[in-house]
């Protein structure tokens, strides 16, 4: 915490604050001899207290006039949690239910289920630093890695907006990796890919992803929301010749992600309950002490200083009002 003032020239008045230590603003009445008067402990305490109050009041006044404030800065904090980049699929199929239909009745679309469960996830992990990215036809950075959970909740709330056309997983991953790269050095961020399908990844994008994975040691999770009827990540080819990225993009994406050389785990969820289980699993895996810096804005301390001065002056005023002067005859 660094304190500073706006107008240092006013601080030249600071020595004036010591004046009450020398003399209090009370009119003195003569007394023949105080040596015969016993010292009174209460009076001595009141005297010292009033002097102290006056010095403090004047000093606060000078500081307030000088514009005392705490400089903007940042504090380092430590919390338990993880740095996570949520990469969300915004393709049109996410708006369907797990059965692959338009949601109707009490059915829930995949994006709505993901939103609900991710919100619960955010609720439980207040110290996580989370970034949000989405992808569809093109990757969309939504929110950089941050610990402002209000913004995060808003970003997650937005994922059940009606989706767009295609699914460009490769460039979405590249974006997530680059966001994870910008996170706190020294920590291993996690990238959680939430999607209900995959696509063929361009070879150039594959190379770029390998480079990015080598540069940034992230933990990669794929939460695959499997639609009923889809063959899924772990599906085996049923006919020879079917084992191509075009025919089985999920299987091949899974295999490609496994070759990136980073910790990788895939979860396949066929319903909201399974999604919840998967998120629980990710949450338990990604809990480490993390250190992060939080920016602290400039804080104006003139107000508290004025308040202190006012309180001090009020006390002095009360003391002045309590002052009594003994009657004294005038010398001719």
């Amino acid at each position: 915490m660094t304190l500073a003032v706006d107008t240092p020239a006013v601080l030249l008045l600071a020595p004036l604050a010591l004046l009450p230590a020398l003399v209090l603003p009370f009119a003195a009445a003569d007394h023949p001899s105080l040596t015969e008067v016993p010292p009174d402990r209460v009076s001595l305490a009141v005297d010292a207290g009033l002097r102290l109050v006056a010095v403090v009041a004047l000093a606060s006044l000078v500081l307030a006039l000088a514009g005392l404030h705490r400089l903007a800065g940042s504090v380092e904090r430590e919390g338990r949690g993880a740095e996570i980049v949520l990469l969300l699929d915004r393709s049109a199929s996410m708006d369907n239910s797990f059965a692959g239909r338009r949601p109707g009745g009490d059915e829930e679309s995949k994006s709505a289920a993901a939103r609900r469960l991710l919100l619960q996830f955010l609720e439980r992990r207040p110290h996580d630093r989370i970034g949000v990215a989405a992808f569809s036809t093109a990757p969309m950075p939504v929110l950089p890695v941050t610990d402002h959970h209000e913004a995060l909740r808003a970003a997650v709330h937005a994922i059940d907006r009606p989706g767009l056309a295609h699914t460009d997983v490769g460039r979405g991953l590249a974006l997530a990796f680059s966001m994870a790269e910008g996170a706190t050095p020294g920590s291993a961020p996690a990238v959680v890919l939430v999607s209900d399908g995959a696509a063929v990844i361009d070879r150039r994008v594959q190379d770029a992803l390998r480079d990015a994975a080598a540069r940034t040691p992230v933990h990669l999770y794929w939460l695959y929301l499997r639609t009923q009827g889809s063959r899924g990540i772990f599906g085996e080819p049923q006919q020879p010749g079917e084992d191509t990225p075009q025919a089985m993009p999920e299987r091949h994406l899974h295999r490609f992600l496994g070759t990136l050389g980073i910790p990788y785990r895939a979860f396949e969820a066929t319903g909201a309950l399974a999604v919840e289980t998967a998120i629980e699993a990710i949450a338990t895996l990604e809990t480490r002490p993390i250190r992060y810096r939080e920016p602290v804005p400039r804080r104006d301390l003139a107000g508290p200083a004025y308040a202190t001065a006012a309180a001090g002056v009020l006390l002095l005023l009360l003391a002045k009002l309590a002052e009594r002067r003994p009657r004294r005859a005038a010398r001719p």
């Binding site: 009370f26 003569d30 009076s43 009033l50 009657r327 005859a329």
Partner: peptide, 25 residues
Amino acid sequence: GEDEDLPAFGLVTLRDAETGRRRLT
């Protein structure tokens, strides 16, 4: 005026006529 005329309550500042020392009472 040395003692009896002093107020019963209140803050009184007395100055010693010989030493000039002040005392808040």
